[in-house]
């Protein structure tokens, strides 16, 4: 791995996104629209205060996962990945370069979304707001890291597409948003323990209920570990040689 190649890759990815207004729209505006719709649906009830922080963490994860998966799929289809693999660029440079570029966007996305939810929709967070923001950014970066790992593990474009729902749906079902995790069958609860989204959602639920950084830092640490793990998995499973 070498910093010049990593940063060059991050810069190239950001340039690509800058030239693509629709992707910028999906990344920044779509999560706001979704939260706005929820706020409008439950106008006059405490639902937004209770679930708003969760949505602020969830939507960026899904959006970033999809955008990253599509970006890396295009890298494969256009033949540029094959070409990159004939240059001195390290596999980790490609993976971390993408993570840095999308991480920068994740920060922007989470800030815009949190500001919109608090000031426009009127969400009242019982816990510390900056920690909600931190978890939202980490969740978005986690979405990117999972997208990178999935497309590195996939051997073909087809496998990469197949992996997308396989990764996202089990996490949605078991993360505690649909049903509190202590009310789940034991087997599902055990599954939720090994899936990363669970920990972000757990932290956000605690924050909505009035927790501060000290109470959720364990969960935040687990999310960070999952991010690092997914990036390492992505960098080590990406193949220079393809069938």
């Amino acid at each position: 791995m070498n910093p010049t190649s990593t940063l060059a890759t991050a810069g190239r990815v950001l340039r690509q996104i800058r030239n693509d207004p629709r992707t910028i729209g999906i990344l920044i505006a779509l999560p706001c629209v979704l939260v706005g719709l929820v706020a409008w649906m439950f106008d006059g009830t405490p639902v937004l205060d209770q679930f708003g922080p969760l949505l602020v963490g969830l939507f960026p994860l899904i959006v970033m996962f999809l955008v990253t998966s599509v970006a890396t799929l295009r890298e494969r289809q256009s033949g540029t990945l094959e070409r990159l693999m004939t240059t001195p660029v390290g596999k980790a440079d490609v993976v971390v370069g993408y993570a840095l570029a999308f991480g920068a966007i994740a920060v922007l996305q989470a800030c815009v979304l949190a500001a919109f939810t608090v000031w426009v929709c009127g969400m009242d967070v019982a816990g510390e707001l900056w920690v909600v923001l931190l978890v939202a950014v980490l969740d978005a970066v986690l979405g990117t890291a999972l997208g990178l790992a999935a497309s590195a593990v996939a051997r073909t474009e087809f496998q990469a597409v197949q992996l997308m729902p396989v990764i996202i749906f089990p996490q949605l079902i078991t993360c505690g948003l649909l049903m509190p995790r202590d009310a789940m069958p034991a087997a599902l609860e055990a599954v939720s323990r090994v899936l990363p989204l669970t920990y972000g959602m757990e932290a956000l639920q605690d924050l909505a209920a009035g927790a501060g950084f000290a109470e959720v830092r364990g969960a935040i640490g687990v999310v960070v570990l999952f991010i690092v793990g997914a990036l390492v998995l992505g960098a080590t499973t990406l193949r220079r040689r393809t069938p």
Partner: peptide
């Protein structure tokens, strides 16, 4: 195999840095 959404010279500069 080139990046369609950036300019010609941006493609070249990116690979120049890698190489």
């Amino acid at each position: 195999s080139v990046y369609a959404d950036i300019s010609v010279v941006e493609n070249l500069r990116y690979f120049a840095r890698l190489l």
